[in-house]
């Protein structure tokens, strides 16, 4: 019994959806979006290492990892890595609550836990920015914090929409990420439930863009303006960990959206070949969508971004959650 628990925790932490799984997915995802991002900009993208440059992300990571570790005289030395590792750990913990894990951890009302786990990466990035004092990091981090104030409530409300809807259909355990992901597919056949789902999908993708500092919300790390924002002072292994966290965030949040909104492998099951293919296709569509928005927009100013989120996204998510609580199911 105890052995089983320990085994499940170790599998979750290190195999699936732990480090091994996440390493492979992150590598392939990074290659994929670099490639399509390059195509959208009329470039070729990674090319030389491996067939079609598929090994390029690994090469980049290893190169950065073994570079010189420079810490300025006013900066913290090891704390940035502690915060980054905790953030990656929290994302893997989030994945082990999804049905993708062989031993999914779930309970009644665990959705708030899942949402709070996604709070670790922003906190890590904020502290990271402040751990290397510099005018550029201070400006970038304070912009990121401003964005977070408007982006967090949207994130919460849109995640709640499918969970509230599936719970209202009477499945157990109630308000759980796992059961919502398993049962959300049946909601897409209900024309009334589709409306809040689509509204929530719209707002969560914009909140995703905002949380990850992708264009048009790349204001915190605005390259041509404030060097690299919170990451100005970082190089070598620390930069490697930062890119790792960024890519893991893309993978985990895309998987979260795929499972929670699109039902994962539905209409098949995860154990069949078709199911796995469907899951991969849906995942690639979400990654493509995010990259597409990134490639086709220009950077907003910070107050424009905040006003945009307050005017055009927050009300949508509020309407979605109100609809989700009142429509007849």
């Amino acid at each position: 019994m105890v052995l089983n628990e320990v085994l499940s925790i170790i599998v979750n932490a290190f195999v699936i959806p732990g480090l091994i799984f996440i390493a492979i997915t992150t590598w392939l995802t990074q290659w994929f979006y670099r490639k399509i991002y390059a195509r959208m900009q009329n470039r070729i993208g990674p090319r030389f290492i491996g067939p079609r440059g598929i090994l390029q992300p690994i090469a980049d990571f290893l190169k950065l990892l073994f570079k010189e570790d420079i810490t300025t005289i006013v900066a913290r030395e090891k704390e940035p890595i502690i915060m980054l590792s905790l953030a990656v750990g929290s994302l893997i913990a989030l994945l082990s609550m999804l049905p993708i894990s062989p031993y999914p951890l779930y309970a009644e009302n665990d959705i708030i836990l899942a949402i709070y786990l996604t709070l670790w990466p922003p906190i890590a990035l904020i502290l990271l920015g402040f751990m290397a004092p510099n005018p550029f990091t201070a400006i970038g981090t304070s912009r990121y914090m401003t964005l977070l104030i408007v982006c967090e409530p949207i994130w919460l409300l849109s995640i709640l929409v499918p969970v509230v809807l599936t719970t209202r259909t009477g499945i157990a355990p109630a308000y759980s990420l796992f059961s919502a992901s398993m049962n959300v597919a049946s909601l897409w056949s209900n024309p009334l439930a589709v409306i809040p789902l689509i509204l929530a999908l719209y707002s969560i993708i914009l909140a995703f863009q905002c949380k990850l500092m992708l264009r048009p919300f790349d204001i915190p790390e605005a390259e041509t303006e404030i060097v690299a924002g919170p990451f100005t002072e970082y190089s070598g292994p620390k930069l490697a960990f930062i890119t790792l966290l960024h890519d893991v965030e893309i993978v985990v949040y895309s998987l979260l959206i795929v499972w929670l909104f699109l039902g994962g492998p539905a209409p098949f099951t995860l154990t069949s070949i078709q199911g796995i293919l469907t899951l991969i296709v849906k995942y690639l569509v979400i990654v493509f969508l995010v990259t597409w928005i990134k490639a086709s927009t220009a950077r907003l100013r910070i107050e424009q971004a905040v006003v945009f989120m307050i005017k055009y996204v927050l009300p949508v998510s509020i309407i979605a959650i109100i609809l989700a609580t009142i429509i007849p199911i």
Binding site: I9, I10, L19, V88, S90, I92, A93
Partner: peptide, 12 residues
């Protein structure tokens, strides 16, 4: 979940 998080963080 906290245990998972700390295990992963420690290995990284």
């Amino acid at each position: 979940l906290t245990v998972i998080m700390i295990l992963v963080a420690l290995s990284l």
